[in-house]
Amino acid sequence: MAGPSRDANQYLTAKQNSSPAELQQDWALLEEYHSKKLWHQLTIKLSSFVKHDELQKGRELIELYENFIQGFETKINPLALVEIVAIVIRQYEKPQDALKFLEYIESRIKNNTEAVALVKVLQGNILLQELKDAEATKVIIDDVEKILDGLDGITTVHGRYYLLASKYFQAKGHHADYYRTVLRYLGCIEVSELSATDQVQHAFLLGLAALLGEGVYNLGELLAHPVLDSLKGTSSSWVIDLLSAFNTGDIAKFEAMKPKWSAVGDLARLEVKLRQKISLLCLMEMTFKRASNKRDLKFSEISEATQLPLDNVELLVMKALAQGLVKGAIDQVDGTVHMTWVQPRVLDKQQIASMAERLDSWCTEVQSVETLLEDKGHDFLTL
């Protein structure tokens, strides 16, 4: 990039004289901090100043950078500099020019890992949203992932990285990756800070991704997430009910809600996949509800619960075993399957109540054995 076109103080004085009254004091403060070399105070002031409505038009911010900020950019905290740049690049009409500017910025902050990661995230957003270059975006995502893996804890860049990655996975139709990435993004921010529209959009798309995502069976995790509350009272509130039906393997409810979910193109198109998934969840729920010593399930019972033909039950059980959703053994002769384990999941209140009942039953059985030992223990000891 070219150096400043004129002396910084002259630029500031000219801007102060030509700006609206509400900005004149801000320009004066910038000039004062710059003259006194108060770089920290100047950085803080610039971070808020570049967001002013009056500067969000034309090339105001680009000129501010070229004529003023560039002269002392190396004295600013690198991450703070990139945060300022994130607002400046919005005024570039050509995405290629914005990318070129970001390449220049990266060369100036290359010794700060977190700042480099943020620059790459900004590049990824331009590549994906404006240039529609998915391959180049994937390279950026992989690079940033490696950078963030080397940092301690959660940084301010993590959330923006996960948001970029989720947009990429959404564009590619990778439902499971999108689901997991958005949950990580929401874990890096305060959901309440999102606009109501953004909350509803995230909740709706998360719900669809959870239903369609390969290997996503722990739906209780999403049902317990506060972002789903944003759907209550909206036209999309049915998504919560559908997720609840899947979580408990309630196939009858799934069938009853078909007029709702079939109106969504992706769900209607992948109906066979949805039916297979809810059948697997139904099998998991059947196993979960049984006491550990009463987990011999008849094929006929599974067929009735899942509404599958009897001939398809064994294949369903084999798929559940292959995906690690349950553990057990099939007895083809007797037409039964003995379950020994079911994959742990986040439970809803109804499932927790069911577990509490089984615990009460187990405690009663233990107490009965204890009483038996007290009554008959002497007989055993004197044999």
Score class of each variant (00 low, 15 high):
L359S: 11
I189G: 01
D198P: 05
V139S: 10
V272M: 06
K100N: 10
I87A: 03
L183H: 10
V369C: 06
F49W: 09
E365K: 14
E32T: 10
Y65P: 00
Y161R: 04
L122K: 04
L283W: 09
V191D: 01
L297G: 00
I44H: 01
A209V: 07
I140H: 09
T382S: 12
P4Y: 01
Q91W: 08
Q170A: 12
Q123L: 05
V144N: 03
G3T: 10
T340C: 07
V139M: 13
L381H: 14
R90A: 13
E73S: 02
I44P: 00
V119R: 00
E73W: 00
A320K: 07
A224Y: 15
L38F: 01
V50Q: 00
L79R: 01
K349M: 12
G249S: 11
G173K: 12
Q70H: 05
Q91R: 09
D375R: 13
Y185D: 11
S235C: 10
E32D: 08
I189A: 00
A322Q: 14
G153F: 04
Q170N: 14
L42S: 00
E365D: 12
L55F: 05
E60S: 07
S300M: 13
A252C: 13
G71T: 05
I302T: 10
Q24E: 13
E83S: 03
G159A: 06
G159R: 07
T155Q: 04
A86E: 06
S192T: 04
G233R: 03
V346Q: 08
Q323P: 03
E255Y: 15
S237P: 03
H158V: 02
F299N: 04
G377R: 05
A356N: 13
K376W: 15
S368E: 05
E73F: 01
A245K: 04
L223Y: 00
A256C: 12
T197N: 10
V88E: 02
A8Q: 13
Q351Y: 08
K120L: 09
L316K: 15
I147C: 07
K100M: 08
R6T: 08
D250S: 10
K289P: 02
K167W: 15
K146V: 12
